[in-house]
């Protein structure tokens, strides 16, 4: 448990240092029409580049090992098909992200800033998460939606 806490802390520090924890900065990146007017903030492209460079290299090294240091096996997604959920879900998520400037990591980290706005957003986000899992887990949905990969720490 201490391990996960420290890893969460490093993740949160990364969000803060990179500027991802500031919704105004996120929205200024997503505002591509501002490229012409000169107020576009390209910083978040550097966040993604930095994160992927480290993760791509690190995963290559780590996944050569037979198993994680403190676990029986690597829990990796196995699905490769493109179903409606992997398009509809991100499409809906993107609208909420564009409205608020918050995605899940920065929103939870924002709780530590002690603002009411973060509390309201995270409460609504958890309600939305619960609803999605509730609908996906209904027996009547089993023929319509394909089961989710059981990943996530």
């Amino acid at each position: 448990m201490l391990l996960q806490f420290i890893i969460g802390l490093v993740f949160g520090l990364g969000l803060i240092v990179s500027g991802m924890s500031n919704p105004a900065k996120v929205l200024n990146f997503l505002d591509f029409a501002a490229i012409r007017s000169g107020t576009w903030d390209a910083s978040l492209a550097f966040v993604m580049a930095g994160a992927i460079a480290v993760t791509f290299t690190g995963f290559k090294l780590v996944l050569r090992r037979p198993q994680p240091l403190f676990g029986e096996k690597f829990h990796l997604p196995t699905r490769e098909d493109i179903d409606t959920r992997v398009i509809a879900g991100p499409a809906i998520f993107g609208i909420g992200w564009g409205l608020s400037g918050f995605c899940p990591g920065p929103a939870i980290t924002a709780l530590g800033f002690g603002t009411a706005a973060a509390v309201i957003f995270v409460a609504a986000m958890l309600a939305g998460m619960w609803l999605a899992r509730f609908i996906a887990n209904r027996p009547s949905m089993s023929g319509i939606v394909t089961p989710a990969d059981r990943v996530g720490a």
Binding site: G96, F102, C103, A136
Partner: peptide, 13 residues
């Protein structure tokens, strides 16, 4: 926004 982010991110795994 919170509802959409929560629902969409879980729906899309």
């Amino acid at each position: 926004g919170g509802l959409l982010v929560g629902f969409g991110s879980v729906w899309g795994n």
